[in-house]
């Protein structure tokens, strides 16, 4: 697997984002844009989660806490007025950096554990955050919720700014993911994921790269949370810090392929519409969750490492088999390699 900027990769990314960008311009039903906003939002969340959960192999189940913190940070900053409606988007990087820094001690403590224990520690963090959101009523409004001032956008294109903001965040998350995998950060993270103890033993700056991945991942998720709060306009603790959002990001990355650039995106574009479809066809009952789970189970059974890695594995094996056959044919004509040659 060579990680180069290939022309094919650039074209793929270009076509994908161009398609996303022109959808609202072409028009179409309102529900489509609404669905796309949440699909792209989950793609951005899942791609951000993937920086830590996929690349470093630390499966955080608490990431929605950063989403909620970002959402509240945004809502509290813009509860009074949002001016022309566009300038609040410019505050998002500040929220992202602040939450990224805030996440460092949390990452430092939680990443002293690994794997399943790490998952449980991060879940605990999620519930602490949710409890705080409920109980710090002076700041968050508690169960009463917190509201964001409504932007003065044209009703006909009201959703557009939120949609494009989500697209920008997805592009940034994918850009970081791509950059990581091409730099020594990504190489170091791969060693952490494969064998952290051995990584220490060859001088990898393990703690540093883990914290970088954690903070960047948390900061990105917080920015998505900010846009979400702005779009929704009114946030409650149980929805801003909703375990289902965490589960969503994790499942989508698992489904598409952890640690890959496009896996989380693919997972989101399958699961979010599927979820909406089932929710609609099964009405108000919770049955849709069963159907959702069934889809997931089937894919996990047949493609346990996720869709993209399974496919690329299969391609690689086929190619290797073809290569092996060619080499065998060659070996029959050439002399066999003697032990002396191996030794020399």
């Amino acid at each position: 697997m060579k990680r180069m900027i290939t022309r094919a990769g650039l074209i793929r990314a270009g076509v994908f984002f161009a398609l996303l960008i022109i959808v609202p311009i072409l028009g179409g039903p309102v529900w489509l844009l609404n669905l796309l906003i949440f699909t792209v939002m989950y793609a951005a969340l899942s791609s951000s989660w993937n920086l830590l959960g996929g690349l470093a192999g630390y499966p955080s189940l608490g990431h929605v806490a950063f989403f909620g913190i970002g959402a509240y940070a945004f809502a509290l900053t813009f509860s009074g007025s949002v001016g022309d409606g566009y300038s609040p988007f410019l505050v998002l990087p500040v929220i992202g950096i602040a939450v990224g820094l805030l996440s460092l001690p949390i990452g430092w403590v939680s990443m002293r554990t690994r794997a399943d224990v790490f998952a449980i520690v991060t879940i605990t963090f999620l519930f602490i955050t949710q409890t705080l959101a409920f109980n710090l009523t002076k700041i968050t409004g508690g169960a009463q919720g917190a509201s964001v001032a409504a932007p003065p956008f044209d009703p006909a294109t009201y959703d557009w700014p939120f949609y494009y903001a989500m697209i920008v965040l997805l592009a940034i998350a994918m850009g970081i993911s791509f950059y990581f995998s091409r730099s020594k950060i990504g190489l170091s993270l791969s060693t952490v994921r494969a064998d952290e103890d051995k990584a220490h033993g060859v001088g990898v700056r393990v703690t540093a790269v883990k914290l970088i991945a954690f903070a960047v991942s948390a900061g990105m998720v917080a920015m998505v949370g900010g846009v979400w709060a702005y779009y929704i306009g009114f946030i409650y603790p149980q929805f801003a810090v909703d375990p289902l959002i965490t589960i969503g990001m994790v499942l989508m990355a698992f489904l598409g392929g952890r640690g890959t650039l496009w896996g989380p995106v693919l997972g989101s574009f399958i699961l979010v519409p599927a979820q909406q479809f089932f929710a609609q066809s099964f009405g108000a009952s919770q049955l849709y969750l069963l159907a959702y789970a069934a889809v997931f189970l089937v894919i996990m059974l047949f493609l346990p490492r996720g869709i993209l890695p399974s496919i690329s594995d299969r391609l690689r094996r086929r190619r290797a088999a073809a290569l092996g056959a060619a080499r065998d044919a060659e070996a029959h004509t050439a002399d066999a390699v003697t032990p002396e040659e191996v030794k020399a």
Binding site: R3, S181, R182, S183, K184, I185, G186, L187, S188, G203, R205, A208, V209
Partner: peptide, 12 residues
């Protein structure tokens, strides 16, 4: 091994 600067540089 790598320096802090190299950490942000090329993978290989």
């Amino acid at each position: 091994g790598y320096s802090w600067r190299q950490l942000f540089g090329r993978r290989v």
